[in-house]
């Protein structure tokens, strides 16, 4: 690990000023950052420790509906907050399907948004990577692409964003609240992560020094609570990143779908909102026909980035399964294996 200056910020303003310097990075739990630093993948010259900042670890219900979650709220605290999990069950399910219990106890909300791809070529200093070393090339092309993109990728980069949590959050129109030198601003989570294009090294819309202070779930997000799921296909039962994941949230009105939300994980360099699929579902009768049509719409633009065409069919089937389980109803109790595609959540009502 490289040497760095350690700065403990006493306020958000102090943190933003200290982190504006080139080479600076924010330190929260460090569960991803320290891993990257140990591997020599990132070499910040200054760490601005924000873990001691007051007030950023709260989950607040907002007066007009919706919730605000502080940047430093730990994954496990958010998942086990009874009121939050009741309002946004797919978010809790995604949280509990990610990483291990130890990591969830440490990892923070903002850190989850800021985590880097798990592309093994990004993690291997001996491989060419445009994200790590702009212009160097991409050894993932023609390599092992099981965890790589089928949507929104470019010739420069075919990596994916690894977050589970961000998938239902983007489906529910979450908004990121950001502090910077010039004050605060808001960005829809859907617009927060950038697709790779010609500059895969630029991963978010954050400007130097800007800091995530909280995330807001809007007033209408809880209206989907009765029919919300997150499902994740992974290569082992627990503690693995998604090969493909999906979050579906439905509002059912008189036997029809009043409103639908759908997002995918493990398929692109950002949590992927499937708006075309939502349009197909709106007003339709819930069932296999409309769910298949939605899946086709979601993946109309998908194309393999290597030897990973299977992910397109896998995503299609997972979307149908996730919509089916969401329509059956949110389980009353969190499943023993959260986000398992192989457990029938509806059976828990029996």
């Amino acid at each position: 690990m490289n040497r760095f200056d350690y700065v403990r910020a006493g306020s958000v303003a102090e943190a933003v000023a200290a982190a504006a310097e080139p080479g600076a990075a924010y330190l929260a739990a460090g569960t991803n950052l320290l891993d990257l630093m140990k591997g020599g993948i990132t070499r910040p010259t200054r760490l601005v420790d924000v873990t001691h900042l007051p007030g950023l670890d709260r989950i607040e219900a907002l007066p007009g509906g919706g919730h605000r979650v502080g940047a430093l709220v730990r994954n496990s605290d958010l998942a086990y907050d009874a009121e939050f999990a009741r309002a946004y069950p797919a978010v809790a399910e995604a949280l509990l399907s990610g990483a291990s219990a130890q990591l969830r106890n440490a990892a923070t909300l903002a850190g989850n948004l800021m985590q880097r791809t798990r592309c093994p070529y990004f993690y291997d200093p001996a491989s060419a990577c445009n994200k790590r070393d702009p212009g160097a090339g991409c050894d993932a092309r023609g390599g092992e692409t099981r965890l790589h993109a089928v949507l929104g990728w470019s010739e420069r980069c075919i990596a994916t964003h690894p977050s589970d949590l961000c998938v239902p959050l983007v489906a529910l129109d979450a908004v990121v609240e950001i502090a910077g030198k010039a004050g605060t601003r808001e960005v829809a989570l859907e617009a927060f992560h950038r697709l790779p294009g010609d500059a895969p090294e630029r991963e978010t819309v954050l400007e130097p020094g800007e800091m995530i202070v909280s995330l807001r779930l809007p007033q209408d997000a809880a209206a989907f609570a009765g029919h919300s799921r997150y499902l994740k296909i992974r290569d082992r039962t627990s503690y693995a990143f998604a090969v493909v994941s999906a979050s579906a949230a439905l509002r059912l009105e008189g036997g029809r779908i009043g409103a639908a939300r759908l997002a995918l994980g493990g398929v692109a360099l950002k949590p992927w909102r499937a708006r075309a699929a939502e349009a197909v579902l709106a007003g339709a009768e819930p069932g296999e026909a409309s769910f298949r049509a939605a899946a086709d719409a979601a993946l109309a633009e998908a194309r393999p980035s290597g030897d990973n065409a299977f992910k397109i069919e896998l995503a299609r089937r997972l979307i149908v399964r996730t919509l089916t389980l969401a329509a059956a109803g949110t389980p009353e109790r969190m499943l023993a294996l959260p986000a398992s595609a192989f457990a029938d959540g509806s059976a828990l009502h029996a």
Partner: peptide, 20 residues
């Protein structure tokens, strides 16, 4: 794995200076 403030965490991924 150790407990920090009563919660299990990976001690390899936490800087001591941050846990003052």
């Amino acid at each position: 794995t150790v407990l920090v403030n009563g919660r299990r965490v990976n001690s390899c991924l936490a800087l001591a200076v941050s846990l003052d």
